[in-house]
Amino acid sequence: MGAEPAQLSTVASARASTWRRWLLRYEVLLLAVLIVEWLLFYHFGTTTNRRGVTVGFGTLDRQFDILRHSCEIGLLALALTPVILTGGIDLSVGSLLGLCAVVFGGLTHALGLPLPVAAVVTLLVGAAAGGVNAGLICQLRLPPLIVTLGTYSLFRGLAEAFTRGSVTYSDFPAGFLMLGQGRWAGLPVQAWIFLMVAVGVWIWVHRTFSGRAFRVIGFSPDGARYAGVGVRGQLTAAYVAAGLIAALAALVYTSRLGQAKADAGLGYELFAITAVVLGGTSIFGGRGTVTGTLLGVAAIAVLKNGLATLPVVMRMNAAEELAGLLTGALLLAALAAGKLAERWRRSPAG
C-alpha cells in the first residue's frame, strides 16, 4: 500500500523528465526560435497598401520567395551535413556550384548538348570533384580543411578560366527555367527537389548503417578503424555525395536566375556551414541531425528575407548588412542556449 503512491510519483516524474528532455532538445528549441521569428516578421512586416492589397512578409508570394531563395543554400547544407558528421568539412561546395554552373552553360551553349545530357554530365562533374576531395583526404590523409580550402580556390579558378571571367551563359529554354521559376502542385519546383534530397539525406544519415558510420568516424576515427568500419569508403561516399548535391544546386541556381556565371554561389559555403552548425551539428563530428540542418536553413532564410520586409529596415536600406549581423548573433545565441539546455537536461530533475 505504502509503496504505491511512491511508485506513481516515480512514473510521473519519469514522464515529466522525458517531457522536459524533449522540450530541451536542441531541435525543439530551434523550432521555437523559428516560429517566434516568423510570427514577429508576420506581425511587423505585413502591411496593406493604398489599394487595400496585403503586401510584405505575410503573403504567399513572399513565402514562396523565401523557399526559392533558400533552396540552393539548403541543398549545400544538406550536402555538408554528412561531411560534418564525420568530423570533416567541405569548403569547396560554393566554388563547385560556380564551376558546375558554367560547365552546364558551356555544355548547352558552346557544345550544344541536349539539356538532359548536359545536366547529367554536370552532375557527374560534381561527383568527380567530390571524388578529388575524397581522394586527397582518404588516400593522402590530408586534413579536410586544407584539402577543401585548396579546391575552394581551384574550382572557382577553373570556373573563371573556363569563362575567361566574362562569359555569362543565358537564354536557357523555358522548359529548363521552369525548374527554378515555375510551380508544381502549388509549390515552387525547386522546393520539391529540395524536399526529395532532404528526405534522401535524412534516410541516409538516420536509417542506414552508413549514417551510423559517419557518427562513429566523427566520434573516433581510430575506434571506427578498429571496429572494422570502412572509413575510407564512408568518407568517399560523403564527399562524393556533397559534390553531387552541389552540382544539383548549380542546376537549380542557373535555372532560377536564367544565367550561369563563374561567380555563382560565391560565399554560399559559409552560409551553408552556418546553417548546419545552427542546426545543432557538432563541428567536431559525431552529433547532429538532418532535421536540425533543415531548421537551421529555415531560420536563416526567414531572418534574411523577413528583415527586408520590415518598414524600418526598408527605410534604412540596410537589409543585407543587418541580416549578416543578426545571423551571426542568432548562431552564437543558439549555440549558447543549446549548451545551457544540455547542462540543464543533464542535471537531476528538480
Binding site: F219, S220, Y226, A227, G228, R287
Partner: peptide, 20 residues
C-alpha cells in the same frame, strides 16, 4: 577507451558495430 569501444555511442550501437 580509444579502440575497444566508442565512448560516446550507446552500448547497443557499440555491440552491433562490427557485426552490422
Amino acid at each position: 577507451r580509444r579502440h575497444g569501444v566508442v565512448l560516446e555511442l550507446p552500448v547497443g550501437q557499440n555491440i552491433s558495430l562490427a557485426a552490422w
